[in-house]
C-alpha cells in the first residue's frame, strides 16, 4: 500500500571509532564493508524514528489513518521496557482509538515479524489496513566489534489488500533456539557469541529461510530481480548471496550497510524500501531478515504497476545523503555512554 523510511542526520565514520581503540580504520572498514553509520540525535529514539517513518508511509499510501486496524512496532530498543511504542505512534499519526497495537521484539527481525502479523490480520479480514514498523537505535558496547555497525533508523509499511504497490506472494520463517546475541534485563549493552553469530546463526537461518521459500514456490535465484538480506555487516549478506547463487547486481540496490550501518529491526525493511524506490512492474524481490536468538523471515514480493505511478517521494537515498559527521566524543555524548551524565534528567 505504502511505505516510509527515516534515518537520523548524524554519521560517524568507522575510522573515527577505530582510532579510539587503536585499530586500523581502513582495515576494519574493509573487513566489515562499512564506511560510516547513522547516529541518533539526543532527542531521537525508536519512538520518534517510528513516527517519522509512519508519517512518511501514510503520506505515500494516501489513506486515512483512522482506517488502520493494527500497529505493530518491532525493535530491540523500545524507549520504555513497559509501555508500548506502538501507542505513541498511533497517537502521533492519529490512528487512535479504534485499533489494536503492540510492540514486538526479536533482535533484528521484529520488523518483518510485524509485517507477517499485519498480513495475517488483513488476509483474515479482521482489519482493513495494518501498519508494521521496524526501527531501532541500537547499542554497541564501547570497544566492541558491534560499535562499528550498531546504528539507528527505521521503515514503516502499510499492509492492505486494495490498491497495493507490490504484493507479498508468500512468506516463510525458519526459527530455532540459538543463543548468538542477547541482552539481559537492565543491561545497557548486548553480548554476543562473536564467531558463533556466523555459521550456526546468521547463515544457517538466512539460507534455510531463503531456500525454504524458493523451494515452496518453485523459484530459483535467477528468477528474482532483487534480493535483500539482513545486514549486520557488509560481509554476511555478500556471502549469503554467493552461497545461494545470487549475483552482486541483484544484491546491491538493497545493500545500505556501507553508508548507514546496521539499523537492526530497520535493516531488512529499509533495504526493501530502497529496492521499492527503484523497482518496476513485474519485478520479483526476495527479502530475508534475520533476528538473533534466532530466526529468519523470508518474503517473495512482486511489484505491480502502481509502484511506478505512485513513486515514494521521500526516498531512502535522500535520507542516506542527508548527513553531518560527528567525532567520537560527540558520539559518546549523543549515545549516552558517558558515566555520570544522565541524559534523561
Amino acid at each position: 500500500m505504502g511505505y516510509g523510511v527515516y534515518l537520523p542526520k548524524y554519521r560517524i565514520k568507522v575510522g573515527e571509532i577505530a582510532k579510539v581503540w587503536g585499530m586500523d580504520g581502513e582495515r576494519v572498514s574493509k573487513s566489515l564493508i562499512i564506511n560510516e553509520k547513522t547516529v541518533p540525535s539526543l532527542d531521537e529514539d525508536t519512538a520518534t524514528i517510528s513516527v517519522e517513518a509512519a508519517r512518511n508511509a501514510l503520506e505515500h499510501a494516501g489513506i486515512d489513518a483512522k482506517d488502520i486496524g493494527a500497529i505493530y512496532v518491532g525493535s530491540e530498543s523500545h524507549p520504555y521496557v513497559v509501555k508500548p511504542t506502538a501507542t505513541i505512534v498511533a497517537a502521533a499519526i492519529d490512528a487512535v482509538e479504534d485499533l489494536t497495537a503492540a510492540d514486538y521484539e526479536f533482535a533484528c527481525k521484529a520488523g518483518t515479524a510485524a509485517i507477517q502479523s499485519c498480513m495475517g490480520l488483513v488476509d483474515s479480514g479482521m482489519i482493513e489496513y495494518g501498519l508494521a514498523i521496524g526501527a531501532d537505535t541500537s547499542q554497541g558496547r564501547p570497544g566492541d566489534a558491534l560499535e562499528y555497525t550498531a546504528s539507528a533508523g527505521g521503515a514503516a509499511y502499510i499492509i492492505g489488500k486494495k490498491d497495493t504497490l507490490a504484493d507479498i506472494l508468500d512468506t516463510y520463517s525458519y526459527t530455532t533456539d540459538t543463543p548468538d546475541f542477547w541482552r539481559r534485563e537492565g543491561m545497557d549493552f548486548p553480548s554476543h557469541g562473536a564467531r558463533f553469530t556466523g555459521r550456526p546463526a546468521y547463515f544457517k537461518h538466512v539460507i534455510s529461510a531463503a531456500e525454504g521459500i524458493m523451494e515452496r514456490n518453485d523459484k530459483k535465484p535467477e528468477d528474482f530481480d532483487y534480493v535483500v538480506f539482513h545486514q549486520p555487516n557488509g560481509k554476511f549478506p555478500l556471502n549469503a548471496a554467493k552461497t545461494l547463487g545470487f549475483s552482486k547486481e541483484q544484491l546491491e540496490t538493497g545493500m545500505l550497510i556501507p553508508n548507514i550501518g546496521n539499523t537492526y529491526s530497520g535493516a531488512t525493511p529499509l533495504g526493501l524500501a530502497a529496492i521499492l524506490d527503484k523497482a518496476n512492474k513485474g519485478d520479483l524481490i526476495l527479502a530475508v531478515s534475520y533476528g538473533s536468538g534466532a530466526g529468519s523471515d523470508a518474503f517473495i514480493i512482486e511489484v505491480n504497476g502502481r509502484n511506478e505511478e505512485k513513486r515514494n517521494m521521500k526516498k531512502v537515498r535522500d535520507y542516506v545523503d542527508r548527513k553531518e559527521y560527528i567525532d567520537y566524543s560527540l558520539y559518546v555524548k549523543y549515545k549516552g555512554k558517558l558515566k555520570g551524565v544522565v541524559l534523561q534528567k
Binding site: 532527542d43 519512538a47 520518534t48 513516527v51 524507549p79 509501555k83 502521533a92 544522565v342 534523561q344
Partner: peptide, 20 residues
C-alpha cells in the same frame, strides 16, 4: 514540524514527546 523527544521526567519518569 518533526516528532522528537522534548523532555523526560528523570530516568524513571515518562518521556514527553512533541513537536519541534
Amino acid at each position: 514540524k518533526v516528532f522528537r523527544k522534548v523532555i523526560a521526567d528523570g530516568s524513571e519518569g515518562i518521556i514527553r514527546y512533541g513537536y519541534k
